[in-house]
């Protein structure tokens, strides 16, 4: 299953490293990354493959959310299809 991982918050050093570190630990393969900074607000979007993840989806989601809470970032991971269905015909 492919999922979209979004990180939104104030820009700071190490966000990409921190999030991709969690992906590496949990066996989540990062397929694409885009990031942009608009007036100090950092928005990173990763397309990830979680088919070979070594933790259940709930745990992955909770670990990312905790990292987000600790660093004042909003981190979400959602099934790719929700975006495909809403924005593509």
């Amino acid at each position: 299953m492919r999922a979209v991982l979004t990180v939104i918050g104030k820009d700071m050093v190490g966000i990409l490293a921190g999030v991709s570190g969690i992906c590496a630990e949990t066996g989540v393969n990062v397929m694409e990354v885009t990031q942009s900074i608009l007036q100090d607000m950092f928005a990173m979007i990763m397309l990830v493959d979680i088919s070979d993840s070594n933790v259940p989806f709930d745990e992955l989601s909770a670990r990312l959310a905790k990292y987000g809470d600790d660093n004042a970032l909003s981190i979400r991971i959602m099934h790719e299809d929700i975006f495909n269905s809403m924005h593509r015909i």
Binding site: T6, T34, L47, S74
Partner: peptide, 16 residues
């Protein structure tokens, strides 16, 4: 890959 604007729009709809 999906458009960043579209992804953020969906998230804003749900979150805000």
């Amino acid at each position: 890959m999906l458009n960043t604007k579209d992804i953020l729009e969906t998230i804003r709809m749900i979150q805000d």
